[in-house]
Simulated assay, not measured.
Amino acid sequence: MSQLNEISDWLQENLPPLVAEHGVPGAARYPGKYERASATLDVLQGENGLVLDMTPTGPLAGLFPTPPRVDLVPVDDSTFLLRENEDKTWSSLAFHALPTGEEYVHMGVRATPEVSR
């Protein structure tokens, strides 16, 4: 079992930089403000690619600390990985447009609509 743990640790530490080397064509369409009742997600163009700045909102906002700004590591042209607080657990974030043109970002099990660009 320890070999499996070693392999898992290696993948967690090394896989995202490998997929990030290729860049994302068309990623310039994703920066904007996405909002839902409990959070505002600002996707910004950073020095090395996209970054996520998430702000808790609503009646429970004061109960949780504001997460740090994090880099979005590209997996493909609409899917990114992120990790908060240098923890080894990666989360995914995906962008999606409805056939009618509305843009959404999906993080966890929540879809958050874009409210401004």
Rank of each mutant, 00 (worst) to 15 (best):
L52F: 01
E103N: 11
E21G: 11
D9F: 07
T89I: 14
S2I: 07
V19D: 10
L60P: 03
P67Y: 02
G108Y: 02
V51K: 07
V115K: 12
P56W: 05
D71K: 06
E6N: 08
V24I: 10
R29K: 12
D71R: 07
E6D: 12
A20W: 04
A111W: 01
L44W: 05
P113S: 01
P74K: 07
R69V: 15
M107V: 03
K88R: 15
H22Q: 15
L11W: 13
N14W: 02
A37M: 10
Y30C: 03
S8F: 11
L60D: 15
F80N: 10
L72H: 13
V70G: 08
I7G: 10
L15D: 07
N14T: 14
V115Y: 06
Y30K: 02
D53Q: 14
E86S: 12
M1N: 09
N48P: 04
S38N: 06
T100H: 05
L4R: 09
G26Y: 06
Y104L: 15
L4E: 09
G26H: 03
P25H: 10
R29W: 07
Q45C: 06
L15M: 15
D77A: 14
G49F: 08
L50S: 10
Q3I: 08
T57Q: 04
T66A: 00
S78D: 13
P16F: 13
L44P: 07
S8P: 02
R83P: 11
G26E: 05
E103F: 08
V43I: 15
K33P: 02
A28F: 02
S8M: 11
G49M: 07
S116T: 01
V75Y: 11
P74R: 08
F95G: 03
T55D: 09
T57H: 02
S38C: 00
L72M: 14
